[in-house]
Amino acid sequence: MPIDAVKAVAAEPRSAEIAWDHKDIQLYHLGLGAGRPATDPAELRYTLESGLHVLPSFATVAGAGMGVVGGLSAPGIEVDLAAVLHGGQSITLHRPIPVRGRAVTTSRVAAVYDKGKAAILVLRSEVADDDGPLWTSDAQIFVRGEGGFGGDRGPSTRLPAPEGDPDREVERPIREDQALLYRLSGDWNPLHADPEFAALAGFDRPILHGLCTYGMTLKAVVDTLLDGDVARVRGYGTRFAGVVFPGETLRIRMWRTDGSVRAEVTAVERDDASVLADTVVTHT
């Protein structure tokens, strides 16, 4: 069997050194659609190196996403990329991410869950620099056709639906070329660029990276409900409920709660089909 759950979880963690600077930060922000309008002071903090802020979701691409790449090549894991989808993502921030950094990321397969027709891999990365921990990231990777091995189904991540009308609602357009730009931050899966590969995975055209939608949503929350202050974010998690296609528009609904923001994200052009669900940003 391509996935040996016991072997994968028991494997020794893998460590690697990663580094980034302002160019990596700026490229990531541009891949999320930052910089429109180009001279807006609220956008310049994402695009201009003299006053650059780092959106915490940059953690998912720092070092070209070494944690996920390493996890998919861990002992006991052998999967077809065409069967792989990102099921969910969470980040815990231990302190703000610096504009320039050098750190060590330690990655392991934290769990393998059996969902019947699919398996879910929980790939955990813990990142620290000389000053201590920076962030912990969990990626839930959905692998079609690899379930049914009799393992633990794992915990439910479903949350009760938000109550009442949202406190804020915004729309964010996705450029036709956005996946091509976003993938330059390190996710080279051809599912997001190659029509023939996308067809093998069951899609009529390439899809947007789930982590691009993830980053766009966090930016919308920070810009509209957190006064544009990225340092207020303490944690961020979501479940990827559906795909997004370049050229579509995201509708992001936000509800304030005590110390957090709930968000639900849909694709406007497909009758508000759900794309991100169970989304929570914790903050100060």
Score class of each variant (00 low, 15 high):
A8H: 01
V9M: 12
A11C: 05
S15H: 08
A16G: 10
I18S: 11
I25D: 00
G31F: 02
A38C: 04
P41F: 03
L48W: 12
L48P: 03
L55C: 01
P56L: 03
A59R: 02
T60F: 08
G65H: 02
G65W: 04
V69E: 12
G70C: 08
E78A: 15
D80V: 04
L81Q: 13
A83I: 05
A83K: 15
A83R: 15
H86I: 01
G87N: 06
G88M: 02
Q89N: 03
I97A: 00
A111S: 12
V112S: 04
R124N: 13
V127I: 11
D129N: 10
T136I: 10
T136D: 11
R144Y: 06
R144P: 02
E146Y: 13
E146S: 14
S156I: 04
T157C: 09
T157V: 13
R168M: 15
E169A: 15
V170T: 12
R172G: 02
I174R: 08
D177Q: 12
L180Y: 10
S185I: 03
G186E: 04
D187M: 00
D187P: 00
A193F: 08
P195E: 09
F197A: 06
A198S: 07
A199K: 15
A201P: 05
L208W: 02
L208T: 03
L218R: 02
R234F: 02
Y236N: 03
Y236L: 01
G237I: 04
T238P: 07
R239L: 12
F240C: 09
V243Y: 12
R251P: 06
I252Y: 00
I252C: 06
R256H: 09
G259I: 05
G259T: 04
E264H: 08
R270Q: 14
A273P: 05
D278P: 01
V281P: 03
